[in-house]
C-alpha cells in the first residue's frame, strides 16, 4: 500500500459519494448516464466475484462490497425511484453501450493472466471499466450546462484511475510489479478523460460554469 493507491481508492469512493449526494439531496439524476452506471454494475460484479474465492482482506473487501452496493443503488434510483427516474435525460443518453460489452469480452477471452473463469471475468471488467465512461461523456457533451456535482463526480472518477497510474509507476520501481493488462487499460481509461479534464480545470480557473464544446 502506498499513498497514491490509498488516495486513488478514496477518490473513487468520494466520486460515488458525490453522485449519491446529488441524487439523494436534489432528487435528480439529470446529466448522469444510466448506461455508464449499468456498465459499472457489470464491471463490479464481474471483478468482485472473487469475494467468494479469495481470502477476505481488511482493506479490499469493504471497498468491494461498497462499490457493488453503491453501483446497484445508483442504478436502482435511476430506474425505479418515482421522482429521480423522471429527471433522467433518456433522450440524450444515446450511446450504444451494448456494443462495448462484446469487444471487451472477446479481448478478455484472448488476453488474460490465466484462462480461468475468474481471471477472464477480471480481465473483462478491467477492459469494460476503461471504456464505461464513454456514454457519460457523450451525455455531458449534449448538455448545455453541467451542474457542479455532476462535474465533480466525473472529475473524481477520472482522477481515481490517473492516481492508479502513479501507484503503478511507484510499484514498478519499489516492488518490481509489472501488470500490463491494468496498466494499458488504465492508461486508455485516463486518456479518455483528457478533454474533460482540460475543460473542467479551465472552467474552474475562470470561475465559470462547466460546459463541454
Amino acid at each position: 500500500m502506498n499513498a497514491f493507491r490509498l488516495l486513488a481508492d478514496l477518490t473513487h469512493l468520494l466520486s460515488i459519494i458525490i453522485l449519491l449526494v446529488k441524487i439523494r439531496t436534489t432528487k435528480s439524476c439529470a446529466g448522469i448516464s444510466l448506461k455508464t452506471q449499468d456498465l459499472y454494475v457489470l464491471v463490479f460484479i464481474s471483478r468482485y466475484l472473487d469475494l467468494f474465492t479469495r481470502p477476505l482482506s481488511l482493506y479490499n473487501t469493504p471497498f468491494k462490497l461498497v462499490f457493488l452496493a453503491t453501483s446497484i443503488t445508483i442504478v436502482y434510483y435511476m430506474r425505479y425511484h418515482k421522482v429521480v427516474k423522471q429527471t433522467y435525460n433518456k433522450d440524450s443518453d444515446t450511446f450504444k453501450h451494448y456494443f462495448l460489452i462484446l469487444p471487451c469480452a472477446v479481448l478478455a477471452f484472448f488476453i488474460n493472466p490465466k484462462f480461468t473463469f475468474i481471471e477472464v471475468l477480471w480481465s473483462f471488467s478491467i477492459y469494460l471499466e476503461a471504456v464505461a465512461i464513454l456514454p457519460q461523456l457523450v451525455l455531458l457533451q449534449s448538455s448545455s450546462n453541467i451542474d457542479n456535482l455532476t462535474g465533480n463526480y466525473v472529475f473524481m472518477l477520472g482522477a481515481y484511475r490517473a492516481l492508479y497510474l502513479l501507484n503503478w509507476i511507484y510499484r514498478f520501481f519499489a516492488e518490481d510489479v509489472v501488470r500490463w493488462i491494468p496498466w494499458i487499460a488504465g492508461l486508455v481509461q485516463t486518456a479518455l478523460y483528457a478533454d474533460f479534464f482540460y475543460y473542467y480545470i479551465k472552467s474552474w480557473r475562470n470561475n465559470e460554469r462547466l460546459k463541454l464544446p
Binding site: H12, V177, V178
Partner: peptide
C-alpha cells in the same frame, strides 16, 4: 512476482 499479488488492487 507471484500470482498472489496480482489481485491485490481494486
Amino acid at each position: 512476482v507471484g500470482e498472489k499479488k496480482f489481485h491485490d488492487e481494486l
